[in-house]
Design a protein around this nucleic acid. Structure first.
Length: 204
DNA sequence: GAATCGATGATCT
DNA sequence: GATCATCGATTCA
């Protein structure tokens, strides 16, 4: 199976977000490889989206959202949690998709170890149900910021800390359900969170 | 179960 | 100096 390529991400952010639901997220690091099925994402656009980090134009942090698509945007929130995003849209237009939850497919034990949970007791459901938990379980932190997600962009790798690939998968029949985004105060009325509502592994 | 609250640091005004 | 796309422990029921 071929991983998704840059053209997949070089499109409208909402479209990319919807189509990511059901795809497989594979993360490879020194300790091993883990795979999860994406079941919950949120779309963040550019200047027109008050909840977006790019809402006020280019800043040192938001710069990457204006850059070329197919790269990881990872940032720290609340001083202790990391969030993983995929940069979308053509270069020059801001956009990103926040990965909020995945269903563990393989590497459950490594996920549990990284989460600091006893793998016997750890409920599989809680391993990756939330952006902070997911990053913890996948071993992703700020040093992954700017990492290419697709083949062919290798020259731009800032530091070969690990590898992320996304593979096509089966989305929910009829498409994902759209709901308001979680944990934000601005633009709560926009239905930019997309979920596989059948899943038992969603975040709050 | 539901509600509350503290931890903790980068970013921007 | 305020804000923040969160989590987990603790409290109360």
């Amino acid at each position: 199976m071929q991983p998704l390529r840059q053209a997949f991400f070089a499109r409208n952010t909402i479209t990319v977000a919807r189509e990511l639901v059901g795809c497989l997220l594979e993360v490879e690091a020194d300790e091993g490889k883990v795979v999860g099925r994406i079941i919950e994402v949120e779309a963040y656009e550019g200047e027109g989206d008050p909840a977006s980090h790019a809402a006020n134009g280019r800043t040192p942090r938001s710069e990457i959202m204006f850059g070329p698509p197919g790269f990881a945007y990872v940032y720290l929130i609340y001083g202790m949690h990391h969030c993983l995003n995929f940069v979308t849209e053509a270069e020059g237009t801001a956009g990103a998709v926040l990965i909020r939850a995945v269903e563990p497919v393989s590497g459950h034990e490594l996920m549990a170890v990284r989460r600091g949970l006893d793998s016997d007791i750890a409920r599989e459901k809680d391993l990756c149900s939330g952006p902070g938990r997911l990053c913890r379980a996948l071993g992703i932190d700020r040093s992954w910021n700017g990492l290419p997600l697709v083949p062919g962009l290798g020259e731009s790798i800032p530091s070969a800390i690990g590898k992320i690939r996304i593979f096509p998968g089966e989305g929910p029949p009829g498409g994902p359900v759209a709901t308001p985004r979680i944990g934000i105060r601005q633009a709560v009325d926009r239905l930019h969170r997309f979920i596989d509502s059948r899943s038992e592994y969603l975040s709050g």
